[in-house]
Amino acid sequence: MKYQSEPYRIFCTDDAGKCVAEITFPETEAGVCCIDHTFVDDSLRGMGIAGELVSRAVQQIQANGKQVTATCSYAAHWLEKQKGSGKNV
Rank of each mutant, 00 (worst) to 15 (best):
F25M: 09
D36R: 04
I35N: 02
G31I: 05
R9M: 07
D36I: 03
T13M: 06
N64E: 15
F39L: 09
A57F: 02
A30P: 05
T69M: 11
C72F: 11
T28C: 00
A70S: 06
G48H: 12
M1W: 03
T38L: 11
G46P: 06
T71S: 12
I49H: 01
D15W: 08
G17A: 00
F11I: 14
P7C: 04
C72D: 15
S5G: 08
T38G: 15
R45Q: 15
G48Q: 11
C34Q: 04
G51T: 05
V32I: 12
H77K: 11
V89L: 02
Q60N: 01
E80G: 00
T38W: 14
V54F: 03
E22R: 03
A30I: 09
H37I: 00
Q82E: 04
W78E: 03
C34T: 07
E27P: 00
M1A: 10
Q82S: 07
A16S: 11
C19L: 13
G46W: 04
V58P: 02
E6R: 05
E27F: 03
K81F: 00
V58Q: 05
V89M: 12
D41N: 14
I10R: 05
Q82W: 03
L79A: 03
A76L: 14
Q4T: 14
H77G: 12
R56K: 14
V32K: 02
R45A: 11
G84T: 08
K18V: 13
R56S: 05
G46Y: 04
Y8T: 15
R56H: 07
G31D: 13
Q4E: 11
S85Q: 10
E6P: 01
D41R: 10
R9K: 13
Y8A: 07
V32W: 07
T69R: 13
K87M: 09
T71L: 06
D41H: 15
G46L: 14
I49F: 02
K81C: 02
E22H: 09
C34I: 06
V58M: 10
G46V: 10
Q67K: 09
I23M: 05
C19I: 14
L44Q: 06
L44D: 08
G84N: 12
N64L: 11
H77V: 14
E80S: 05
Y74T: 15
T28Y: 03
E22A: 07
Q82Y: 05
I10A: 05
E22K: 07
S73N: 10
P7G: 08
W78V: 07
G84E: 06
A70M: 07
Q62A: 04
C19N: 15
C33D: 13
A63C: 05
L79W: 02
E6M: 02
A63R: 11
V20F: 05
L44R: 01
V89T: 06
M1G: 13
K87V: 12
G65C: 06
D14A: 09
D15S: 13
F11A: 09
Y3R: 00
V68W: 01
V58S: 06
D15I: 07
Q82N: 07
A50P: 09
R56G: 00
S55W: 08
Y8P: 01
I61F: 01
K83D: 01
V68R: 10
G48A: 03
S85V: 04
L53W: 10
V32Y: 00
T28G: 01
T38Y: 13
A76N: 08
K83F: 02
D15G: 12
Q4C: 11
A76P: 03
G65F: 04
Q82I: 02
